[in-house]
Design a protein around this nucleic acid. Sequence first.
RNA 1: GCCCCUAUCGUCUAGAGGCCCAGGACGCGGCCCUCUCAAGGCCAAAACCGGGGUUCGAAUCCCCGUAGGGGCACCA
Length: 486
Amino acid sequence: MTDSRPVRVRFAPSPTGDLHIGGIRTALFNWLFARRYGGKFILRIEDTDQKRTKEESQAGILNGLAWAGLNWDEGPDIGGSYGPYIQSERVALYRQWVNWLVDKDLAYRAYETPDELAIIAKLHQGYDRRARELTRDDWARFDAEGKPFAVRFKIPLLGETTFTDMVRGPITFQNDKLQDVVLLKSDGFPTYHLANIVDDHFMEISHIIRAEEWIPSAPIHKLLYEAFNWEMPQIAHVPVILAPDGGKISKRKHPEAAISYFIKGGYLPEAVTNFLCNVGWNYGVLDAEGNEVQIFTKEQAAEIFDISRVTNNGTKFDLVKLQWLNGEHIRLMNPVELAKRLRQPLEDAGLTVDMDLLIRVTPLIQERIKLLNDIVELAGFFFRGEIKPITVTDLVPKKMTAPQTRSVLQQAYDRLAALPDFSHTSQEESLRPLAEELGLKPGPLFTAIRVAVTGQPVSPPLFETMEILGRELALARIAHAIQLLQ
RNA sequence: GCCCCUAUCGUCUAGAGGCCCAGGACGCGGCCCUCUCAAGGCCAAAACCGGGGUUCGAAUCCCCGUAGGGGCACCA
């Protein structure tokens, strides 16, 4: 799988918006690959498009990657021996090498304006290579006129180009279908094609793992490596992530396309990376019964990651399965650690969090929530001074009347008030017999108390809840409910 | 339009010619457990895109259709 070069892979996003879920997956596969072979994972910012680059987007990318736990060994913030890691700081290098190509007659200047190009593109399929005919004298004349130019790559007119994809095997393109792509824009900045090759070479990248949408430019890149006489990294294209409805997942139509959706939505990075591992790749470890293991860490995945086993078809994004996985990871966590992560969602909902209280509440909800944010609805009442307003309808269980309910609550109140201690076990030992004495199933009795005490029909286990709330508060709320039923 | 990639349950996938009348997981349905809700346990339904080859034998290899996806910028 790896040749003799030390493994160095990179994730190279362009800072033009939120980090995309597909980007995270690409980054994850690169990370997995680097860790698997004891190599380096490098972060490089490709900001060569001056118009679309957004200042704030770079920070978002770094945050998103850090949130996912995809730590990089070299990058714009931490440096490294191959820097700088931001392309806009490397333009001199690109110009040097594009000039080298022009000197060797492997690239040429093109002076068409955008308007001319638009017309040419309509008449032919793309650019018709007319500037190839220009002589150096023509260049000098245009330069004297002050005409701006771009530099285009001279693609061989004949023959074919084949590269071997680590996940798909050999892929061949006819050279006459390839475009003489622009290498250096008239603003002096390189295009992706140039900057990418130059950087990968000088950063000694050994393997390129990127999304499928880059397959069509791979032959051009191979030709560029040949033109420079540089060794081409091994290359792998991983399938794109599709929206649940089939099409390409877009931030516009699908909020879950952006990583911020998961950060804000109460997802665990452990669950997101676990999920993404299995989108397009199969962990393939069996448990004692011979079933495939679904839940694992990215570190475990890194031990056996195999890029050649990545699937080669596009995969739909199943949010429901991610949510299930998130719940599984929540259940796996140490309760105190979980409590720490539960703090933010509560605060975001405007609640004041007492950490000691939260640590007591957490075990009650740990197996009842799928997303961290679910705590607000299920157990937010612990952190509010008062419960939501309730009505008689809320309070009276099915098949019971208001007077019945009132009487039942009164008796429950008396028993709870008389308890020597307010532990949940004592409560249960006292109230279960009461239900029986009243000829009731436990359900209706406990439901009435639950609504009275928590203000909700659904709550964590009643007795544990009341124990944490404390006798005073629990009884006051029951008393209030009794009043309501007068 | 041209080029490229892909094709197993609704979804993610296992399957590297016989172990497959196709296995696992999510979801869905049912049952059990149960103070609500979950979690957990058990059971069930559910797929090899179509047609031709190759072969003693094909989900697996080849070809042709079809369908989906991606790419055809001085964006990455």
